[in-house]
Amino acid sequence: MSPRRTPRATSAELLSTLRRLAAQTREGVEHQQARVELAEALQRELLPASLPVVPGLRAAARYAPARHGLDIGGDWYDGFRLSEGALAFSIGDVQGHDVEAAAFMGQVRIGLRAVASVVDDPGEVLTRANEVLLAMDRELFATCTLLRFDPETWEIESARAGHVPAVWATVDGRCGIAEDAGGPPLGMLPGGGYAVTRRRIAAAGSIVLLTDGVVEGPAFPLDEGLERVVRVVREGAGTDPEELAAEVMKVADSTGHADDAAVLVLSHDGPERAGTSRDER
């Protein structure tokens, strides 16, 4: 007895199947594109339209979306005025991507602004922001650097929450990576403390805050990326911050990164004052 043969599909049936699969694929692509566009819109609306400046201090920023559509929304930069003329700047990276990360990024950024408006110490700002995020009971967390600049004393206070260190350089040739003590990422562990590093600016130069998408990728590791940024900042210290931000972002292009990337540049003059502390830049 010969085996029973399965009837072959007709041409009409094959065409019908192909149309159905094509429609499903098109719907999936359109859905993904809609989520990408929503994430990009959130990113544009949540990032600041401008950054604060004072005489002797100029700021500029750059943001580059990820190379893959849905990997967008986690990185941010910000700058805002505080009481008594001080300025605050922050940069950070939310774990995860897509619309949820963009929305969480906005919550973190607004939370930092709110706390910094009533608390001067950057470490205490991060501590309280961490408590707020933990109370929200979200599964996401964020790394962050918060910097406070006093234009009267030319003192900078900074605190880090698991974030990439800043890079600095002065016009007289000094440069380095600010490997300051920090604490855990925001929204991860209760009771975390955040050490504050205080420095007084003594010479013209630039400070560059960035996210790991700028300095880490398949092409080279984070340490090498940071050293490349140091060389760029040393050559451009004290120059126009817009130009320097663009040059630093070129490092991100060379990493082959799939993550989004953000750069925040503070170019400063040297204060016209005497008496400076030993740890000044």
Results as ranks from 00 to 15, higher is better:
Phe104Tyr: 06
Glu124Asp: 12
Ser117Phe: 04
Pro122Gly: 03
Phe149Gln: 03
Asp120Ser: 12
Leu82Thr: 07
Leu146His: 04
Val119Phe: 05
Gly85Asp: 08
Ala88Glu: 02
Ala116Tyr: 07
Asp78Glu: 11
Glu84Trp: 07
Met136Asp: 15
Gly92Ser: 06
Leu126Met: 10
Ala159Cys: 06
Asp137Ile: 10
Gly106Cys: 07
Ala88Gln: 02
Ser117Gly: 11
Cys144Met: 09
Glu157Cys: 12
Val108Gly: 00
Ala103Cys: 00
Arg128Ile: 15
Ala129Gly: 00
Asp137Pro: 01
Ala161Val: 09
Glu124Pro: 04
Gly106Asn: 05
Leu82Pro: 02
Ala142His: 03
Thr145Leu: 14
Ala169Lys: 07
Gly162Thr: 01
Tyr77Glu: 04
Glu155Met: 12
Ser158Glu: 12
Glu139Tyr: 15
Arg160Met: 05
Met105Trp: 00
Val164Thr: 04
Pro165Glu: 02
Leu134Ile: 11
Phe104Leu: 08
Tyr77Thr: 10
Ala142Tyr: 03
Ala102Asn: 09
Ser83Asn: 12
Gly85Asn: 09
Val119Trp: 04
Val99Ala: 00
Arg160Cys: 09
Ala166Lys: 01
Glu84Met: 11
Glu100Asn: 06
Asp172Gly: 12
Glu139Ser: 12
Glu84Ile: 02
Glu131Ala: 13
Ser83Met: 11
Ala101Val: 09
His163Met: 05
Ser83Leu: 15
Asp93Arg: 01
Met136His: 13
Gln107Trp: 07
Gly106Phe: 04
Pro122Phe: 08
Glu131Pro: 02
Phe141Leu: 15
Leu112Ala: 02
Phe141Trp: 14
Asp120Trp: 09
Val164His: 05
Gly123Pro: 05
Ile110Pro: 08
Pro122Arg: 02
Ala135Ile: 13
Val94Gly: 03
Thr170Trp: 10
Arg113Gln: 15
Thr153Ile: 12
Trp168Pro: 10
Leu82Ile: 03
Val108Met: 01
Thr170Gly: 15
Gly92Met: 06
Ser83Trp: 14
Phe104Pro: 03
Val125Glu: 06
Ala129Pro: 02
Ala114Thr: 14
Thr127Ile: 07
Leu82Arg: 09
Tyr77His: 07
Pro165Asp: 07
Arg160Val: 01
Gly123Ile: 00
Ala161Gln: 00
Pro165Trp: 04
Val171Cys: 14
Gly111His: 09
Leu112Thr: 08
Thr143Gly: 13
Val99Pro: 03
Leu112Phe: 03
Leu126Gly: 07
Thr127Phe: 13
Val94Pro: 00
Arg113Ala: 10
Ala142Asp: 03
Gly106Ser: 05
Val118Thr: 13
Phe80Gly: 10
Glu155Val: 15
Val132Ser: 08
Ala116Leu: 03
Ser83Gln: 14
Cys144Val: 12
Arg138Leu: 14
Leu146Cys: 04
Ala159Asn: 02
Ala114Trp: 01
Gly111Ile: 06
Glu139Ile: 13
Ala86Gly: 01
Ser117Thr: 09
Ile110Cys: 08
Ser83Thr: 14
Leu133Cys: 10
Ser158Met: 15
Val99Tyr: 04
His163Pro: 06
Ala129Ser: 11
Gly162Arg: 05
His163Tyr: 00
Ile110Leu: 14
Phe104Gln: 05
Ala102Phe: 02
Trp168Lys: 06
Val132Phe: 11
Glu124Phe: 04
Ala116Arg: 08
Gly85Tyr: 07
Thr143His: 12
Leu134Gly: 00
Thr170His: 11
Ala166Glu: 04
Asp137Asn: 15
Arg113Thr: 12
